[in-house]
Design a protein around this nucleic acid. Structure first.
Length: 702
DNA sequence: GAGCACTGC
């Protein structure tokens, strides 16, 4: 029993009555279950267990601790439990631990509730968007980093917590990065608050430098050695090289599953086919294979296939092999045990942001060293493995960046800036970002928020801005919701905004493109994609969210379901902000005006040559072929600007030119337009509009 | 006439 003393405190084992008391769970005052002791044994074998004493000591002496521990060290599950015993947890102020992903927050909370032998949602809980599994008893809460940021909006000093842990800090998600800066300011005002930053090996020193004087505690990991192989020459075609290498490994290497990293859906589906073909050609000289694609837009049931066991041996007794072809999803979000071979071509699709054009786009680009190490590590989770890098050792050493650029340097910061302003951070230039974004990116964000009326000319948050920040949305979409009652169409706008913040609801499988296009025609409103989506959503609600119906109409029921969840959340926020929910019936002109009231900076005009010109940036664009708008209206609003072979605008609604002056006369005042041709266009339109109005009023006065 | 790495509020 003495081994349990660390957990339970003061058991000297002498007094039998004491012994009974000691085996009681202090959280529930119940006797520990049998399961508790079983789990305890595995817990105690985790490397994190050995760090407990030092951790609690460091916590006494420091306000911030950086903890470095690799996968398998048990840091995420054990450290928070140790901290619960610390004297720094006082009264009702509990501990929270952030995670970049929802599933992680949920599953870790479940696990820890089991370990502590309590009901999930009581002493241990989790909080993610759409689900709060906590109660007033909760002392340990796992939550997404975005969720903690939301909490800060209404509790600026995060006074609910005595200890805040930022887990997976090395991933440098946008939200974790903002939390870093925010917590640094909070620490000044809350000397009782403790911060624990947890990271995989790579970035720990950077965090120490950021929180000056923070000590570092290292916890060893549980990884088996992985042997690294490089190519002698650079590969011209990494997809072809990956396929070739996969087939060779299957033919010549020992038993053990394989993981191949590629960059996207199409690449992965093609590679799967080719690998299957190539291996079939070999006949029964090599074992049977199960080749499984893995990327995020696959339905969960398909994703589950990666956990199927490898196929059994063939007639000759040659063992089978599981080959998973995955995107970066397998680098962080999903771990697959049993992988022995990893093929790393060294590329990934990464988000890049062009502040001048305010466009985020995806580019296939070389990964970082940190990322390559992470990929290799996937081969050593259950036994020693091998990683085949499809690039030379020299390019690994000399060409790859040390770390992936943090997300904050690759993103549009409009909503980040709005959130920071709402948090009371007015001086963004001096805000202590761990990696400060380019000034131009911040300028662009401030400009947009000013155009939307969220910030005044001094850069102060306005009443409108305050309200916009309440919505978990891009600022433009928040503005639309705020205006929606004025345009008598808030019911419709809540649906449309929800639909715009989920993955595409229209499915278009390669083999049934024609059928899918025909199916969409049933919901088509030729005036725009927004109204077409609205029709599809309304039909989905009318069919009582029937998944079969969705499938036969080529609608993505998962997307529609999450749009429904988002809609519910937005509706509640509307009620809270006292914006009436009213419907415009079929007067969709109001919907168009309302859309324009948020997206007036994303308007394009038809040119005489048949192309469109993006009004603000004076940039030639084309309507994306997926749009239902094909009559070439004079003016359109667009939601998204995509940069591929051409400059496309996506999610289009046709509007009447005169709406520009009606919805935002200041912005479309010709006198403030610098570009001459654009100004002339606008002056002409203004003249026409004035004349049209004159005629109308003459007619009505007759 | 064509594209969707991955998350998150």
């Amino acid at each position: 029993m003495s081994r349990f003393s660390a957990e339970q405190g003061d058991d000297d084992g002498a007094d039998p009555s004491k012994k009974i008391r000691v085996s009681m769970n202090p959280w529930t005052n119940k006797v520990y279950s049998k399961k508790y002791y079983e789990i305890l044994k595995t817990r105690q074998s985790l490397p994190a267990w050995e760090a407990k004493g030092q951790l609690l000591k460091l916590l006494d002496e420091n306000q911030v601790i950086v903890l470095q521990g690799e996968t398998g060290s048990g840091k995420t599950t054990q450290i928070p439990q140790f901290l619960l015993e610390s004297k720094h947890v006082k009264g009702k102020k509990g501990i929270c631990c952030t995670q970049p992903r929802r599933v992680a927050a949920m599953s870790v909370a479940k696990r820890v509730a089991d370990e502590m032998d309590v009901q999930l949602g009581d002493e241990v809980g989790y909080s993610i968007r759409f689900e709060d599994k906590t109660s007033n008893k909760t002392m340990l809460k796992y939550l997404t980093d975005g969720m903690l940021l939301r909490e800060a909006i209404h509790d600026p000093l995060l006074e609910k917590y005595s200890i805040i842990m930022l887990d997976e800090a090395h991933e440098r998600t946008l939200n974790t990065d903002i939390l870093f800066g925010l917590l640094k300011e909070i620490l000044e005002n809350r000397k009782d608050l403790k911060i624990v930053v947890m990271s995989a090996t790579m970035d720990a020193e950077k965090f120490q430098g950021y929180f000056k004087g923070a000590p570092l505690l290292e916890i060893p990991g549980r990884l088996y050695p992985v042997e690294i192989f490089y190519t002698h020459e650079p590969e011209k075609d990494y997809v072809e090289a990956a396929i070739r290498t996969a087939v060779q490994i299957h033919m010549y290497e020992d038993e053990g599953d394989m993981l191949v990293f590629l960059t996207g859906e199409e690449e992965i589906e093609n590679a799967c086919k080719q690998i299957k073909q190539e291996i079939q050609k070999q006949g029964d000289t090599c074992g049977p294979v199960n080749v499984i694609p893995l990327y995020s837009s696959l339905p969960p049931a398909m994703q589950q296939k990666i956990f199927d066991p490898a196929p059994g041996p063939n007639k000759k007794g040659i063992p089978g092999r599981k080959i998973i072809i995955a995107t970066n999803i397998a680098e962080t979000s999903l771990t697959i045990d049993g992988i022995v071979y990893v093929i790393d071509p060294g590329f990934a699709k990464q988000k890049v942001f062009n502040p001048r054009m305010r466009v985020e786009s995806l580019l296939v680009s070389p990964i970082s060293k940190a990322s390559a190490k992470q990929r290799a590590g996937r081969a050593g989770r259950t036994r020693p493995g091998k990683c085949f890098r499809l690039y030379t050792e020299a390019s690994f050493k000399n060409e790859l960046m040390e770390d992936t650029y943090p997300e904050i340097l690759r993103s549009n910061l409009a909503s980040v800036v709005l959130t920071l302003k709402k948090l009371g951070i007015n001086d963004l230039v001096h805000f202590d970002f761990m990696d400060p974004p380019a000034p131009e990116t911040l300028m662009r964000a401030l400009e947009l928020l000013n155009d939307l009326g969220a910030l005044d000319d001094e850069g102060e948050l306005t009443k409108i801005g305050e309200m916009m920040a309440e919505f978990p949305l891009e600022p433009q979409l928040g503005k639309i919701l705020l205006n929606s009652a004025k345009y008598q169409c808030s019911e419709e706008m809540v649906s449309i905004v929800a639909l715009l913040s989920v993955p595409n609801i229209f499915m278009r499988p390669k083999e049934n493109q024609k059928e899918a296009d025909d199916a969409r025609l049933k919901f088509c409103n030729p005036d725009g994609d927004h109204l077409t989506m609205l029709n599809a959503y309304n039909a989905y609600k009318q069919k009582k969210e029937n998944a079969e119906w969705c499938k036969s109409n080529y609608l993505n029921s998962r997307s529609l379901k999450s749009a429904d969840d988002v809609r519910e959340q937005l509706k509640n926020l509307m009620v809270k902000l006292e914006i009436p929910l009213v419907s415009c019936g079929t007067n969709y002109e109001n919907v168009k005006k309302c859309l324009l009231s948020g997206f007036f900076m994303q308007v394009a005009k038809l040119q005489r040559n048949g192309a469109y010109m993006a009004f603000k940036d004076v940039q030639t664009v084309a309507i994306h072929p997926s749009s239902v708008v094909d009559q070439k209206p004079d003016w359109v609003i667009y939601n998204e600007f995509v940069l591929t072979k051409r400059h496309y605008i996506r999610n289009i609604t046709a509007i009447k030119g005169e709406y520009l002056f009606e919805v935002n006369p200041d912005y479309f005042n010709p006198a403030r337009i610098k570009h001459i041709d654009t100004r002339k266009d606008l002056e002409k339109l203004e003249k026409e509009t004035v004349e049209k109005r004159k005629k109308q009023s003459q007619q009505s006065s007759k």
